[in-house]
Measured scan of single mutants.
Amino acid sequence: KAKLLVLLYAFVATDADTICIGYHANNSTDTVDTILEKNVAVTHSVNLLEDSHNGKLCKLKGIAPLQLGKCNITGWLLGNPECDSLLPARSWSYIVETPNSENGACYPGDLIDYEELREQLSSVSSLERFEIFPKESSWPNHTFNGVTVSCSHRGKSSFYRNLLWLTKKGDSYPKLTNSYVNNKGKEVLVLWGVHHPSSSDEQQSLYSNGNAYVSVASSNYNRRFTPEIAARPKVRDQHGRMNYYWTLLEPGDTIIFEATGNLIAPWYAFALSRGFESGIITSNASMHECNTKCQTPQGAINSNLPFQNIHPVTIGECPKYVRSTKLRMVTGLRNIPSIQYRGLFGAIAGFIEGGWTGMIDGWYGYHHQNEQGSGYAADQKSTQNAINGITNKVNSVIEKMNTQFTAVGKEFNNLEKRMENLNKKVDDGFLDIWTYNAELLVLLENERTLDFHDLNVKNLYEKVKSQLKNNAKEIGNGCFEFYHKCDNECMESVRNGTYDYPKYSEESKLNR
């Protein structure tokens, strides 16, 4: 008799109507990190870190770059004969040098303040090359056809396309004075040089004057150069050297050249137009028929994500570079809930034993079982409120962090190594801060989002509990077992918050 009662009780308990509160689960393989956990499985997430590029040089917003090819900045601007293909260059979106560009200054020497000139050019998007001192009329008392084997072109001695090597005419090199007034309405880049012979005999042979000088002056520039005559090792078949100089001439300003020898005179100059998204990159990537809004030396990035880990040097509207390998923000729920887990921000989770793959029309909802059958029903209101809140948060985070910009490298010469090392340390410090901030932001927001979901499920549970009161009992896994019969209409009233407690209280009292 006792065995019969136990079996009867078990049958009745199993047959009781139930309603459970749960949440969506799926077959997603997404994982995120939080402050407290690593690799948390979630139903949905968004990636904030771009880690792919196309490996190509592309047009930037429809404008092609200027590819210097086998030449570098120095060779292009001075007019190395091997860089003749660059003479027609007028406009570009950015400038590309190759790491091993070999054609710079063909006659050995240095372009002074080269690093600063590169910085200036990094904001130039177009130029006009014009004859600042016409070759045939500007130097009537001097020979202007100086050439050298060091600047050979097609097997013949030649010289820079933008400079003139002035030497004596006959047996004399009379003092020369020439000036140019900038009437271009924009900055003009003027380049010139000073020749330093290897011996007094060479000085006399070329310029006749043993104590020659070169003077260059404008409103913002004033220097006097004296040739340094000295024996030097042979470089590119030359014992002599040429140093090259430049200045930016403001609109309306005048530049005056005065010399008694050794002047490498300007022939062509450049009127410059600035462009905020221009820059110089060093890259071996090849040019393709493609378009982008962000270019790196590795390749083009076409992404609206706020961060990238491809390269710190970028041109155009680019994500911020960070050292992170993963920045994924959760938008959905835990896919593998932890039992009795309390989140960092106070939300209680884990009283549900598992997510439901059968509930596909919402994030949170119900599963019921009664004599009429069983089924899932999503709670659309709480789901939609959660979707709206999380979507707004993700968009806000992306908008705040998605300050796209150009980031170019800084140039230092060989004598500025300590400054370069200090600059690298400062840049590394800023990069570490950006990386830390980005990672911390994602970790915190992921923790908040998961706790937010847990709290929403808990609130749904409490909503049902407050309606049923003692007409049902909690069975410990997020479910309630009714003390009365609850048909589909009754189940719907529980879900929509209109459950009639008094209607079922007498039946429940008897069954309790």
Rank of each mutant, 00 (worst) to 15 (best):
A25W: 02
N209P: 07
S199E: 07
C106Y: 10
L272D: 02
I255D: 02
G109Y: 09
G240H: 13
A2Y: 14
S152P: 14
S200G: 11
W76V: 10
S208Y: 11
E115A: 14
Y94K: 09
S152N: 14
S138P: 00
G155P: 01
I281S: 05
K169Q: 10
G69N: 11
W92H: 04
V32N: 00
V40H: 07
K184Y: 03
K186T: 13
F276P: 13
L60Y: 13
S85E: 14
F159D: 03
S200N: 05
Y207W: 06
S158N: 07
R129Y: 05
P227A: 15
P65I: 07
E131H: 04
P65R: 03
S45R: 01
S273T: 13
L77W: 04
G104L: 02
K234H: 02
D110I: 12
C151A: 03
E82C: 06
G109K: 06
T167D: 08
C20L: 09
H195R: 12
K61M: 04
T98K: 06
Y114C: 01
S138G: 12
K156A: 11
W76K: 04
A105I: 05
S219L: 12
P251M: 04
N220L: 15
Y221W: 13
A265K: 05
I112L: 12
H195V: 01
G146I: 13
E250R: 14
W76T: 05
Y213F: 13
G261H: 06
V194L: 14
L4C: 02
P134K: 15
Y268L: 05
Y114Q: 13
Y94F: 06
K3E: 09
I63Y: 01
Y268S: 03
P108C: 03
L5D: 00
S198Y: 00
E258P: 00
G55W: 04
H142F: 12
Y23N: 01
L121W: 07
D110K: 10
Y23Q: 14
L189F: 10
C83Q: 06
P227D: 00
L78D: 04
W165A: 03
R223V: 09
T34A: 08
R274E: 07
N209K: 12
K38C: 09
Y160I: 06
G252A: 09
F270N: 04
E277D: 15
Y180A: 03
E50W: 03
D51E: 10
G252R: 11
H239D: 00
N103D: 00
N100S: 11
G252M: 15
V149C: 04
W267P: 00
G185C: 01
R232S: 02
V235Y: 05
D110G: 13
Y213R: 09
N26D: 07
N243Q: 15
D51L: 11
N39E: 11
P81D: 09
N100M: 06
R236N: 15
C71D: 03
T143L: 06
E128C: 02
S278R: 08
N182I: 02
I256G: 07
S152I: 13
I95E: 03
L7A: 11
L191Y: 08
Q67G: 09
I264Q: 02
T98S: 12
I63T: 10
S157C: 01
G240A: 04
S91F: 13
S126E: 13
G104D: 10
D113F: 10
I132V: 11
S123M: 13
W267K: 07
S152T: 14
A105C: 11
Y245G: 10
C83M: 08
A64H: 14
G75C: 06
L127S: 11
G170N: 15
S101M: 06
L191E: 01
L189I: 09
F159L: 04
E119G: 03
E136I: 06
F225V: 15
N182P: 04
C58D: 05
S152V: 11
S28Y: 05
A230D: 00
G55A: 09
K184G: 08
G193Y: 01
P140F: 01
Y94V: 03
L7E: 03
V40E: 07
N54M: 09
F133G: 00
G170V: 06
N211C: 00
T177N: 06
A13W: 10
L249M: 10
L191A: 08
H142T: 15
G170A: 12
N145R: 08
S101V: 14
T254P: 00
T247S: 10
N178A: 14
S93G: 15
I256T: 09
M242G: 01
L66W: 12
L164P: 00
K135Y: 14
R236G: 06
I264P: 01
H24S: 11
I281N: 06
L60E: 10
S172I: 10
N39Q: 08
K186P: 00
I21H: 07
N243Y: 14
N72T: 14
S122P: 01
M242D: 05
Q67H: 02
S122H: 08
C106R: 04
N178L: 07
F159R: 04
F159Y: 11
T254M: 05
E187G: 04
S157D: 01
P233I: 13
V216K: 03
V40C: 12
K175D: 08
L249I: 14
V194C: 06
K1F: 15
S157Y: 14
W76L: 07
V40L: 07
V42F: 07
K169I: 11
I132G: 04
E102G: 11
A231Q: 09
S218W: 11
S208K: 05
C71Q: 08
I63N: 14
L66F: 08
I63L: 12
I73N: 01
T167I: 09
L249G: 00
W139I: 02
A259Y: 06
N209H: 13
I280T: 05
T247N: 04
S125E: 11
S152K: 10
Y173S: 02
F11N: 01
Y268Q: 08
P99K: 11
L163R: 01
Y94D: 07
P88L: 15
F144T: 07
P108V: 14
L86Q: 09
S157L: 15
S123V: 09
W267E: 13
S215G: 06
V181L: 11
P134G: 03
H239M: 14
I19C: 00
Y23L: 04
S137Y: 07
Y9C: 14
E202C: 09
I112G: 01
D17F: 03
T31L: 13
V188M: 11
K70F: 00
Y114I: 15
V214L: 12
R129H: 09
E228M: 01
T148F: 00
T167F: 07
L189Q: 10
P140D: 06
V149R: 02
L66H: 12
D15W: 11
Y9T: 09
A13V: 05
I229Y: 13
S179W: 13
E116A: 08
I132W: 10
K59E: 08
G22L: 05
L272N: 00
T43R: 05
A265C: 12
T260L: 10
T143D: 12
Y107M: 10
S152D: 08
R118F: 12
W246L: 01
F276N: 11
N141T: 04
S208C: 03
I256P: 00
I35L: 08
Y268H: 15
G75A: 14
K61D: 13
N26R: 13
S158E: 15
L263I: 13
L263M: 12
V181D: 10
D113Y: 08
C83K: 06
M242L: 09
W139M: 11
I280W: 05
S198Q: 10
S137P: 04
G75D: 08
V214P: 01
A259Q: 06
T177V: 14
Y207C: 06
W165V: 03
P266M: 12
K168N: 06
R154M: 10
L263E: 03
L117F: 11
L86A: 09
